[in-house]
Design a protein around this nucleic acid. Structure first.
Length: 869
RNA sequence: GCCGGCGUGGCGGAAUUGGCAGACGCGUUGGACUUAAAAUCCAAUGGGCGGAGUACCGCCCGUGCCGGUUCGAGUCCGGCCGCCGGUACCA
């Protein structure tokens, strides 16, 4: 063993020890308070960990290790969200079974995670692709099915020919697939849907109780998108059925001058007149061919066609023309709107273009210039019939009054609309959970619980079957089965579940991974749930977190879990960007172009990347040294194509896992986006070296002789207990960066002491242990302890040691600091005494001479201020 | 467009409740040790000005910009500007 701090020796040593000793196996006893700290479920990709992963994992690991020391029973598990597209696409290319790819990737991830010293309980590892796991995913689906929350529907789905699969709305970004960026078209297909909309209100309302970032809750609220308004039925001239519209502005009903149906709306055929038929059909065909992208494009020149039909406005009996236009979406509201051009920007634009009358019904703007949409200041006008008048009312009251009237007359009722849609839950892929569903005589029937799991068969080819069905459709011997109840021939469902399925409930499986009567052991569940701290990236803000909450509520309703919400406290770690890069722009003629002019330049530009030494700072900009040419200085998202990916393995090799962990926490606040800087890793590495030398004599490898058995003196106790206090509070608040700087300050102080009292040194080691577990285990051992430091008690600070002998005051005159004052602690609360002392200061007197003191401010322990005129 | 977040030294960031802006780290500069270098240790380090003249003292400016409240504002209020994230014909 070397005598200097050598992470490459001590880190593997302790990792091996923890593994063999099962140091972090979760205690089965339930006499202690519990703490469940969870990381977001990793997908074991082929490229291994990047430095973003350990950020969240280190944060949770520090919490886990800290809570163990505080006497908690800690559940800190890990597992694999291992179904998914990449392994399947790799299989398409190479023929390798996704199971093998997945297994290899998991192996790699595990090694990397272990090399970082995370204190996971590896005996609870779960894997979504394990039949013992997905048996319960299927079981939960059966519950959903039994509860009427899973249904089949022929829906126009987002079909991605390139991926050979259907995507959820959330997986389509700007009309292209989120994965790979391939085109997506609408295609009707039989699909499984989950009725998440039935839980919309609860998903919305229960957000209030959660300790989550406000921004994230807001994103979920927007996603659910609850809006209050009214459903109003309009009679159609010459057709028996009404058209129902949803509006958030029933107060503007008198201003409706036309109606618009989505081109796909089923009533279009019934209202279209003979002479308009051709135009309408043509328009509908155009709309059908438009991709999602084109229809929602920023270029919003509104188009539409008059159907020839008329609807009757229930408030005034007026006949208004019915149009179709693709600015109205079938999937929003009822797929039909009453158009009020005076008070809706889209309707205003449309009415302008097609010369439809614009009527003012809320006073406050100029409807000839644009729609007046303010609902706070307006006053309703031109809105009365024989029975009711809204005139003179503010918008809010008018809404209530007209809604009541509509309801009384049977023309409509108050209604709540959601942006949230039902969840498209099937995929035409191989590498996912099979549905526990068979079709007997074409009718869907659940596979009995005893028959679970329905396992994935091996296939020869991973290509989609060509019909859009999954590769499973080609496995005759798997597809064809018999109904265990009747013995009739049956066919299996060939769709598989989306990747979200497995990650919707994994946090429950960790609680009792071996339990074989339900997804989770009810007794264990009552003890461990809810998750006390959940850390992960903001990219899961809506999808994963909304789906998991939905499933959790379903499981709550059928008595599987005891809490309404799964994740009590949630934190999003910020992304770690690559190192700052400097880029200069060069024109075709070889001249540099200043970075601030790049936007206005039309020609081709070459990007030249520069070293830090070639760049200077000038004002707020970076310039090429010795010139006035501005260059770009920016940290970019890490990506393979940019080549700025930092591999944690390299950092571990050079500085050790403890330094990597410490650096990732020291960079800045956990939630914030931060640029990586390898140079800065050296700073924390030096700090660890200083800690080592504080305790170990590098010549002998023994405890340094300046580490003495004496008790710390008063000054040392003060520094120590300040450190204990700050580190404790900061860890609780996840402010790891400032916790670390406090320990650095302590070490800088202790370095100046002649003798270093052993009790103080030991407390430092314990404080540091959650952050840098390897070096502290080694030091703990050197200090003579035989047990791991993992369960060594967290030190408590004593308030009495924090009290200083003297108190410093800043003495201000008119708010500017002019002197410092040191006051005996006993007298520091004595206003008259301190003020008197302050006035005697020479440097203060010259300010007091010139005028009269009009006010004296005294803030105990902090500041004295004289206001002089 | 709408919603949310953020603007502090050369850089990452600190200041948790309105009370001495710049903790801690990086970088830079100087010094000690060394044949030398690395490592380590010590010191200085927001900008400007002035008085000394030998490491001492003082003044002014300074937390994106403009204004306000206050004895006192990085922190609170109003109005802008910029960057990042989310979302978008949501009726």
């Amino acid at each position: 063993m070397s005598t200097e701090y050598n992470p490459s020796e001590i880190e593997p040593k302790w990792q091996k020890y923890w593994e063999q000793d099962k140091t972090f196996k979760t205690d089965k006893e339930k006499d202690k308070p519990k703490y469940y700290v969870l990381d977001m479920f990793p997908y074991p990709s082929g490229s291994g960990l990047h430095v973003g992963h350990p950020e969240g994992y280190t944060a949770t690991d520090i919490m886990a290790r800290y809570k163990r020391k505080k006497g908690y029973n800690v559940l800190h598990p890990i597992g694999w969200d291992a179904f998914g597209l990449p392994a399947e696409q790799y299989a398409l290319k190479t023929g390798t079974h996704p199971r093998d790819t997945t297994e290899n990737n998991i192996q790699r991830f595990k090694e990397q995670l272990k090399s970082l010293g995370f204190s996971f309980d590896w005996d609870r590892e779960v894997n979504t692709t394990d039949p013992d796991y997905y048996k319960w995913t299927q079981w939960i689906f059966l519950k959903l099915y039994e509860m009427g929350l899973a249904y089949q529907d022929d829906v126009p789905v987002n079909w991605c020919p390139e991926l050979g699969t259907v995507l959820a709305n959330e997986e389509v970004v700007n009309g292209k697939s989120e994965v790979g960026g391939f085109p997506v078209v609408k295609k009707p297909m039989r699909q499984w849907m989950l009725k998440i909309t039935e839980y919309a209100d609860r998903l919305l309302d229960d957000l209030d109780e959660l300790d989550w970032p406000e921004s994230l809750k807001e994103m979920q609220r927007n996603w659910i998108g609850r809006s209050r308004g009214a459903d109003v039925d309009f009679q159609v001239k010459g057709y028996e059925e009404d058209i129902r519209v949803f509006t958030t502005r029933p107060d503007t009903l008198f201003g409706a001058t036309y109606m618009v149906l989505a081109p796909e709306h089923e009533t279009v055929d019934h209202v279209t007149t003979e002479e308009q038929k051709e135009k309408v059909e043509e328009y509908r065909e155009q709309a059908r061919q438009k991709s999602e992208l084109e229809r929602t494009e920023l270029n919003r020149d509104k188009t539409g066609v008059f159907t020839g039909g008329y609807a009757v406005n229930p408030v005034n009996g007026e006949e208004i023309p019915i149009w179709i236009a693709d600015y109205v979406m079938l999937s929003v509201g009822t797929g039909a709107i009453m158009a009020v051009p005076g008070h809706d920007e889209r309707d205003w634009e449309f009415a302008r273009k097609y010369d439809i009358p614009i009527r003012e019904v809320v006073k406050g703007g100029d409807v000839t210039q644009g729609a007046f949409t303010d609902t706070e200041s307006g006053e309703v006008v031109n809105s009365s019939n024989n029975e009711i008048s809204l005139n003179g009312l503010p918008v809010k009251e008018a809404k209530e009054k007209i809604t009541e009237w509509l309801e009384k007359k049977g023309y409509g009722k108050e209604a709540i609309n959601y942006k949230l849609r039902d969840w498209l839950f099937s995929r035409q892929r191989y590498w996912g959970e099979p549905f526990p569903i068979i079709f007997v005589d074409g009718e869907a029937k659940p596979v009995p619980e005893e028959e679970l799991p329905v396992t994935l068969p091996d296939v020869e080819k991973y290509e989609p079957s060509g019909t859009g069905e999954s590769p499973l459709a080609n496995i005759e011997e798997w597809v064809n089965t018999t109904d265990p109840e009747t013995g009739k021939p049956a066919k299996r469902e060939t769709n598989t579940m989306p990747q979200w399925a497995g990650s919707c409930w994994y946090y429950l499986r960790y609680i009792s991974p071996e339990y074989d009567e339900a997804p989770v052991d009810p007794e264990e569940e009552k003890y461990w749930m809810p998750v006390d701290l959940y850390v992960g990236g903001a990219e899961h803000a809506v999808l994963h977190l909304l789906y998991a909450r939905f499933w959790h509520k379903v499981l709550y309703d059928c008595g599987v879990v005891s809490t309404k919400e799964p994740f009590q406290r949630l934190v999003n770690q910020g992304m770690i960007l690559g190192e700052v890069e400097y880029t200069a722009y060069k024109k075709e003629d070889g001249e540099y172009l200043s970075a601030d002019k790049v936007d206005e330049y039309d020609g081709k530009l070459e990007k030249i990347s520069l070293e830090e030494e070639e760049v200077d700072k000038q004002g707020d900009n970076y310039i090429l040294k010795g010139t006035d040419i501005q260059v770009e200085g920016k940290a970019h998202k890490m990506s393979k194509s940019r080549g700025n990916v930092i591999n944690p393995d390299d950092i571990v090799e050079e500085y050790g896992a403890d330094s990597l962990r410490l650096y990732e926490m020291f960079m800045g606040p956990l939630e914030q986006v931060k640029p990586w800087s390898t140079k800065d890793v050296e700073g924390v590495y030096r700090f660890l070296n200083r800690v080592w030398r504080l305790i170990v004599d590098e010549d002998t490898g023994e405890i340094d002789e300046d580490v003495v058995e004496d008790d710390p003196d008063k000054k040392q106790l003060k520094t120590l207990h300040e450190t204990i206090k700050k580190v404790t509070e900061d860890v609780e608040g996840l402010r790891f960066n400032t916790a670390i700087s406090q320990m650095m300050t302590f070490v800088n102080d202790a370095n100046k002491w002649d003798k270093r009292p052993r009790p103080a040194m030991e407390k430092l080691v314990v404080l540091l242990a959650p952050f840098a577990p390897h070096i502290t285990e080694e030091l703990w051992e050197k200090l003579g302890y035989e047990e791991s430091i993992a369960y060594a008690d967290w030190p408590e600070y004593k308030e009495e040691y924090l009290i200083p002998d003297t108190q410093n005051f800043a003495v201000q005159v008119n708010g500017k600091v002019r002197a410092q004052l040191e006051v005996d602690i006993e007298k520091s609360e004595d206003k008259e005494y301190v003020l008197g002392l302050a006035k005697e200061q020479q440097s203060i007197q010259k300010y007091l001479e010139d005028g009269k003191i009009v006010k004296e401010i005294f803030v105990p322990g902090k500041i004295v201020n004289f206001v002089v005129k």
